[in-house]
């Protein structure tokens, strides 16, 4: 799920950036530092949409770096248990398959794949129904439900299922080619 929230961060700026463009430098550095990172608490920071407030800088003893408390608005993405996501399959093996929904990695183990889908080893490992009408392979797009998340300080990993109503392949690249 996406959220638009306000976060705060202490930015350290090298004295060489001090000058008329200090603020611009600070914002650019903030974007470089923060966008794309993941915190267990808020999820993945997708984009910074604005800087609310930059506080008074504080010179660090010894280094000359200056710390600015910065309040900024950003869009974060955090997966939740029970959430439905659309993801792209990245790897298929006999234990199940891995998929990515944006920055999030999701693993669907083979007992959470419908029983009528069988693993087919080979050049392109895939899961296929007995009549061959549905096939899950690399680059397939699937709709899945998250049934568990493991949230570390800097990492989020999810377990999903496609063994439920309206879940499964939503677009099969193998079918069109």
């Amino acid at each position: 799920m996406f959220f638009h929230i306000v976060l705060e961060r202490n930015m350290q700026l090298h004295p060489r950036h001090f000058g008329p463009h200090l603020r611009d430098k600070l914002v650019a550095k903030l974007m470089k530092d923060v966008e794309g990172t993941c915190s267990g608490r808020h999820g993945f920071v997708v984009a910074i949409t604005g800087v609310d407030n930059i506080g008074k800088g504080l010179i660090r003893d010894g280094t000359g770096f200056v710390t600015f408390p910065v309040k900024y608005q950003c869009v974060v993405f955090r997966p939740f248990k029970g959430e439905i996501l659309e993801a792209v399959v990245t790897m298929v093996n006999k234990m199940g398959f891995f998929a990515e929904a944006g920055p999030v990695q999701i693993f669907v183990s083979n007992h959470l794949i419908p029983d009528d889908m069988e693993f087919q080893a080979g050049d392109v490992p895939n899961y296929t129904t007995s009549d061959g009408s549905v096939k899950i392979q690399k680059e397939s797009e699937v709709r899945l439900k998250i049934i568990g998340t493991r949230v570390d300080a800097t990492e989020i990993f999810c377990i999903g299922t496609i063994k439920d109503d309206f879940l499964g392949v939503i677009n099969d690249p193998g079918a069109s080619s």
Binding site: N93, M95, F107, G148
Partner: peptide
């Protein structure tokens, strides 16, 4: 558990 899947491949 399946949560470790990423490290196990």
């Amino acid at each position: 558990t399946a949560f470790d899947a990423l490290q196990l491949i």
